[in-house]
């Protein structure tokens, strides 16, 4: 009988402490990609980008055209002005796809692991609950942030490249647009993803999670609208998540808004929603102890 000694364990360089969430995220994305609707939706989601890219290229080419006729024509058509409003329109066009992708990837993110008893195996590995949560969040936000942040930044940089003549003028007037695009994208994507994940954590299947999310958003918007009408206070519409996002888009990109609630209250409301959702997910993951 050999004598076994387990007190000493040599350092093993092949094990990394950081980045284990990457495995969870990659695995979740692999599952999402295997859905047939995923690629079709991704192609469809590229449409706003392609439309805006077309407008940008045409506008920039016409603006740089020596002919005064073309330059005047561009100035006449308001939609073709590449400014904050242009980026706001782009982000508004991608917003429905953000919700759809959050539902598609996030709807089954937690409940499928529950249903397939995978949490038991995951947490028997040296994977913290936060790493698991973060990995799932990254997977859900991956495409939506790609569409919003990467899309808007690509258009921004492309405009700088295609219209070098108006570079100084454009940057002095619109430099703030770039960070605003990133901030708005985060404000839109993170709470949406967390909301879907929380619904997924509380439901039994992807379908149920999607139904709960849609019902919550519909009821929230409807009740905020009814409350605003009954009390004759239009600022109460900001109780609606969707309305709050629209209001923030108006505030951040300098659009006209008829709601007078200060932006920080709206941001605080959205952040609270996101935190509550994150707590629900983390709480649900921890309850695996009781579930087993």
């Amino acid at each position: 009988m050999p004598i076994y000694e387990q007190t000493y364990k040599p350092w093993d360089p092949q094990y990394r402490v950081r980045g284990r969430w990457l495995a969870v995220a990659a695995q979740e994305l692999r599952i999402a990609r295997s859905a047939p609707i995923y690629r079709r939706l991704l192609l469809l989601a590229l449409l706003p980008f392609l439309i805006c890219l077309f407008i940008l290229v045409v506008t920039d080419l016409m603006t740089t055209n020596p002919s005064a006729l073309f330059r005047n024509l561009v100035r006449q058509v308001q939609f073709t002005n590449i400014d904050a409003r242009y980026f706001k329109i782009y982000l508004s066009m991608t917003t429905p796809f953000v919700y759809l992708f959050c539902l598609l990837v996030g709807g089954g993110s937690i409940c499928n692991d529950y249903r397939n008893n995978l949490l038991e195996v995951y947490f028997a590995k040296p994977l913290t609950r936060f790493e698991y949560f973060f990995g799932k969040l990254v997977a859900v936000c991956y495409v939506p942030l790609g569409l919003t942040v990467v899309g808007s930044m690509t258009l921004f940089v492309l405009h700088l490249i295609l219209a070098p003549a108006s570079l100084t003028e454009f940057l002095s007037a619109n430099l703030w647009v770039a960070p605003m695009c990133v901030a708005f994208s985060l404000l839109l994507v993170l709470p949406s993803a967390l909301l879907v994940m929380a619904c997924s954590a509380m439901s039994k299947s992807t379908g149920w999670a999607s139904v709960i999310v849609c019902a919550l958003i519909f009821m929230n918007t409807a009740s905020a609208g009814v409350l605003a009408e009954v009390l004759d206070e239009r600022n109460l519409r900001c109780l609606s998540f969707v309305r709050s996002i629209i209001h923030m888009a108006d505030v951040m990109f300098g659009g006209r808004t008829w709601i007078t609630v200060p932006w920080y209250y709206v941001v605080a409301g959205i952040s609270t929603l996101a935190m509550v959702c994150a707590l629900i997910v983390l709480r649900r993951i921890r309850s695996v102890d009781i579930a087993s």
């Binding site: 092949q14 094990y15 990394r16 402490v17 980045g19 284990r20 990457l22 495995a23 969870v24 990659a26 695995q27 692999r30 599952i31 295997s34 499928n112 397939n116 008893n117 995978l118 038991e120 195996v121 995951y122 590995k125 040296p126 994977l127």
Partner: peptide, 24 residues
Amino acid sequence: RENYYDDMTGFEFVYWLTRCTGMS
């Protein structure tokens, strides 16, 4: 208990869970 995604291959199942231990 059974712990799988049915559309996953056996290799993927073992590979991804091994990745979760921190392996490259």
